[in-house]
Amino acid sequence: MGDMVAALLCGVLVAVAVGEPAPDPPPHLLSEVLTCQPDPPSLSLSVTLDGLPLFWFDFPGSRWNPGIPSLPAWPPALESPREILPESQLCREILGILGPNLTGQIPEGRAIPTISVFPALPPLPGEPNTLVCLVENIFPPVLDIGWAVGGAEVTRGVSQGPFVPSADLTFSRISRLSLTPRPGAVHACVVTSRRDNATMVAYWVAPDTALDEQLDTALAGAALALGVVLALLGAGLALLARG
C-alpha cells in the first residue's frame, strides 16, 4: 500500500511539474486584396500582414509603394506591374458585367467610419510634429480626408495613405499633417464621403503649457489656503472645547 501511495504522489508531482502544454500562437494572416469599383479610386491593391499595411500598388504610377517607410523595396521579380494590370482589367470587366445586373437587386454595404486624431510624438512647444488622422470602418472605400487649422483649410505638409483592407472586410486610411503646433490651436481632420455627401470632423487642440503651469500654480495656492483655513478652524474648535 505504501508503495502504491508513493507511486500516486510521484505521478501527481510529475503532472504538476509538466503542466498543460503552452497554447500555439495564433497564425499570422498575410493577405492581398484587389478592389475595383465605379467611384474613384476605381482600383486599389494592398498587401497586409495581420491588418498592417506592408505594400500598396500605385496604379497611376504603375509601381509598388511600401506601407511602412522603413520597409525595403518590393522585389522586382515578385508580381511585377505587367502581371497586375491584366488582373485589374479582368476585375473591371467583371464589375461592368455584374454591376448593372445587380444594382437594386441586392442591398449595398455601408459602414459608419470612426475617426481618431493624435500626434505622432508627445507635443512640445516649438518642436515639429506630425498629426495623424486614422479613419477606420470604411466601406465602400470612397472618401476624402482633409485638414483645417483654426478654421482655415490646410494642404501644405499633408500626405495621404492608401485604403488598407482589414479582416472584417472594411478598410482604413491614414492622413498625416506635418506642422509645429501652436499652443491652443484647433486642428480638424475633415472626412468627406462623396457617395453620401456627408462630412465628419474630429478635432485635436495643441496643449498650452503656460496655461497648464498657471492652473497648477492656482491649484497649489488654493490647496495651501484651504489647509490654512482648516488649521485655523481646528485651533478654534480646540479652544472652544477647552472653554
Rank of each mutant, 00 (worst) to 15 (best):
Q160D: 10
P81K: 02
E108V: 15
D144E: 12
L102R: 11
A188K: 10
V149K: 09
R92A: 12
N101D: 10
Q105L: 15
L98G: 02
G150Q: 11
L169Y: 10
G104W: 02
R182K: 15
P122G: 04
Q89E: 14
L124K: 10
E136N: 09
E87M: 12
R173Q: 15
A152W: 11
F118K: 05
T192E: 08
S88Q: 09
S88E: 10
A167R: 15
L169S: 15
S159G: 04
V186C: 10
F139V: 04
S166D: 12
T192P: 07
S166I: 09
T199R: 07
S193P: 02
C189I: 03
L124Q: 13
A120D: 11
I138S: 02
E83K: 15
I115H: 01
G161V: 06
S88K: 04
R173W: 04
S116F: 05
S159Y: 04
R82H: 09
E93H: 14
S159I: 13
A120S: 10
P141G: 01
C133T: 04
I106N: 10
S159W: 04
P162I: 02
G157R: 03
S172M: 06
E93F: 14
H187Y: 12
S88L: 10
E108N: 14
A185N: 08
R195K: 12
A152S: 14
P86I: 02
I115W: 00
V132P: 05
L131Q: 05
V135L: 02
P183R: 03
L85F: 08
P165T: 07
E93S: 15
R173Y: 06
A188D: 15
E108C: 09
S166C: 13
P81D: 07
